[in-house]
Design a protein around this nucleic acid. Structure first.
Lengths: 223, 223, 223, 223
DNA sequence: CATGAATGAGTCTTCATTCAT
DNA sequence: CATGAATGAAGACTCATTCAT
């Protein structure tokens, strides 16, 4: 967060445009070959820039990673907050947040993998801010849980711990997808939510509130 | 699994001893700096070997990674199976398996991190076998769940999906530990298990079976 | 022939210039110390390039060898064909071809030595094309011999075998020069030609056709 | 010649036996892969010795080459001298010497190739002595030529030059054999001798002296 | 005499980064 | 702003040779 990518070029629009190109190109390459196996030359070529030009928009190879990572975090946060905002019912809000996060992680699976696999590329500082974002993200879940507790809807002894776990669980799909090839994303969501709510025992009260707007694809038929 | 590390030196005892040294040294370095930031020279020095000597016990830098990864997998499988074998009650067996896995992941946190972060270092083949092991590991959880279902103790619609998720959840501690600094390992286990059994609703039947032998550290007092 | 040297740098003129530098430098070193005893670093230094720069004009160390060898072959073929073309009289044409080849081999003695001594550096493919060129070169001699036979001027039973032998004989000077230190190149040519025409018996018809244009340096005084 | 291979082991018989093993093994490898591409390890293994043992019978890798080369030279000289000794008639003696040399070169083709291709491996000293042997070998041909001249049988203006050329010509078969695949060794000899005697004109007196003892395989029928 | 583990200098090669044009 | 040639430090790996057992 504190850190930023210094550019030689000053025109902010151009910078934004170029950064977009660079991220696009680098992400594909990083996903396929990993950060270290990808050379700056390749990124430049894939981005349609000369090396010289590339280096007018970044200072380091690390910067490229940082660029991607910044982009991801802002997208994630934004989308998730938007998806869950204004929902009063804790059950529905948690569901919405969880579902959206899974969807995002699915959509940005490459990016998620990158964050998990190559985050050590980032220096201390950047790593700290990544963790900070993660914590914020988790605390968003935590607040829902706590509200649910207060309203007598949840019975979560350690909301912090469970929030972190829930957020982490969202990454199963992205990180262990190869182990879940039998399921679609929606099926995964569909079956994961009851687990989250009632565990493997699954004998909690069954009368769930319906979410009218999404009844088709994952609705409340389950459990 | 099929693949093995060819060595110039033939004495198996010496090879084992040296491989131990190498793994020890490499693991520390890999954990601290990542695979690519660690040079073979450093590993050699840390292992107390000359580069030449090191290279008579491995063929590649990749081999070093493979060595570590082989070691981890065999340890994990063995310990987990032993910890859960012979337990009749599905609740207790699942608890035992889950707890042991978390404990192992804690004990071998560096290794787990390595597996998650640098596994792309492995070529196709090795990667396949890693996935295979993961699948086996998961299917062990799956069988417990299925037995629990049959005996009317669990109500898990998709044992496969949930098994993968449970296994994945074991990695929270190792991968997100920095976000759980407030908790000890035992606390984490202690609070995660009810979540797994009853979800965030937590209103399932509360009379849990005690595990006589381990009542002290995680017993059923909670909830 | 098919194979070519890929370069990172694209400007063809620059590439040509650098390749020239590299060949020059490498040839000297290879001649003095052999291919394997010469390090790429030395070549770079001798060529006035940094290693990095050198490697943007070649892909391999082998490429350097290939470059030299390509250069030699094209020079040789061109010069020899030009020297002998358009001569009607078989005696004179063979003489011209033989003399020119010896001259070339003298001028490019280092290169010839390299071809004989280090050609095994080349992979299968390049080796094949080297042999092919050699065969073409020999078949040029063969055609002269066959025409001489048809015109009743030569009596060569196996033109192919003798052509190969003649071409090979051209390499004496380059390969066994140290054993012929008493002779100049011209003396060598001067005395080798009668041997080729009449053998050690040397009692063939003595009235040789003069070659007006070169009467001075090697003329028909001999025999 | 002056130089010799120092051995740690003192028993001369054992040394001789081991040297034999080493030469055998090394020759095969050198022929296939060249001197530099062959590692001492490989030689040791191929010779059925441990590296340690190998190094008790040589001081250097170069020594191995020297060993082979010494062996070749002594064999060559011995066989050639024996083959030609005591023949009075210069024609027959030259023929005998030439034929035997070709045969030797054929039999020891690998070794000949080695001498031509890798002789630069030898240091100054060894190289000098190799040249010396070559000179001696050539001067043997030279003496025959000179005697032939004196007896009015040959008309060789520069016996030295022609002797060197003749000796060199013997190597065609070994060095350019791949270009002479159509011919057998005997055919090659059979057609090369008339060339040497009468050149490409081939119109010298045809009444050749027969060599009674070898009339079958290459006799004077030809021409 | 034999063994083979150990040594480490040296090899080829890559790649992030700079800077003159 | 763009280009891309140049730089050279650093990396993985090989291999001749030694020496303790």
């Amino acid at each position: 967060m504190t850190r930023s990518v210094e550019t030689l070029v000053k025109d902010p629009e151009l910078v934004a445009k170029r950064h977009e190109q660079i991220c696009q190109a680098a992400l594909t390459l990083f996903s396929r070959k990993g950060y270290y196996r990808t050379s700056v030359r390749e990124i430049a070529k894939a981005a349609g820039l000369s090396i010289g030009a590339l280096y007018s928009y970044i200072k380091n190879k690390e910067d490229i990673f940082f660029l991607i990572y910044q982009r991801i975090l802002s997208i994630f946060r934004e989308r998730m907050l938007k998806a869950a905002e204004g929902i009063e019912d804790p059950d529905l809000q948690l569901k919405a947040a969880f579902k959206e996060t899974l969807r995002i992680y699915d959509e940005y699976r490459d990016e998620v993998l990158l964050l998990y696999q190559e985050s050590h590329v980032l220096g201390r500082q950047a790593l700290q801010s990544l963790m900070e974002v993660d914590r914020q993200y988790a605390s968003f879940f935590q607040e829902i849980l706590e509200r649910g507790n207060r309203e007598g809807r949840f019975a979560v002894k350690e909301p912090n711990l469970i929030a972190v776990s829930l957020l982490f669980l969202c990454a199963v799909w992205a990180l262990k997808g190869w182990n879940l090839k039998g399921y679609t994303l929606d099926e995964t969501i569909h079956h994961l939510i009851p687990f989250i709510f009632h565990g493997i025992k699954g004998f909690g009260p069954q009368e769930e509130k319906r979410e009218p707007e999404e009844a088709r694809d994952e609705g409340s038929r389950h459990r």
